[in-house]
Design a protein around this nucleic acid. Structure first.
Lengths: 98, 98
DNA sequence: TTCAATAGTTCCGATATTCCGAACTATGGG
DNA sequence: CCCATAGTTCGGAATATCGGAACTATTGAA
């Protein structure tokens, strides 16, 4: 779990928004829940790519559940390794979105 | 000053190392001080680009001083806008470098 | 004032990344 | 078995990054 991968993953506002939603709820059923972020439509293939980047950065864990995918936040694990990092990043985005 | 620009700027380990040094000292005389990062040689043109990314993200301020450039950290300004962000990011990189 | 040296920037071609439509795969229900 | 739904993979176009070579800016010395 490398800091550069985490920062890169969250340096994209769309991915940051997706991760915010996942970590806010702890777990989000179905990737298609992110088909629209803000007011922007995200194509399936792009969405798949974004989820993959978040997964490979160690930010989320995905498990198949029937025909869809459950996206779990790995916030606590990341926070254990890099204390305060996630909170500061999501906090910064929250500032801007006010 | 946008979070995505800050994260993008610091998602590159070379830039993160440069910024760590600048903010550790508050101000670094001459960009050429970063000609070698870790054990890796950085070409002038790449260095110039990295400094520009850090500057445009609002992380540093550069002023010409004679023939060279003084690179000042803008840590405190960033911290005022996005509390804890810089500390958490540099802390994460420090973890890894141990 | 002209010249040389040093510090950075700009340009541009090569390489790598990102984006997204289309085709593909996997799972469950009728 | 087939269809519908959810996601992944593929591939080409657009975009970004890297770095050598040429350029600009500033200073100090002849």
């Amino acid at each position: 779990m490398r800091p550069e991968a985490i920062l890169h993953a969250l340096s994209d506002p769309v991915r940051a928004a997706i991760f915010t939603q996942i970590s806010g709820q702890g777990c989000v059923e179905a990737c298609s829940a992110f088909a629209v972020v803000g007011d922007k439509a995200i194509p399936k293939s792009s969405l798949s790519h974004h989820i993959k980047v978040l997964r490979e950065a160690g930010l989320i864990r995905c498990e198949r559940h029937g025909v869809e995918m459950r996206n779990h936040s790995r916030c606590s694990e990341v926070d254990q390794r890099f204390p305060g990092l996630i909170a500061a990043i999501l906090g910064a985005y929250a500032q801007v979105r006010v």
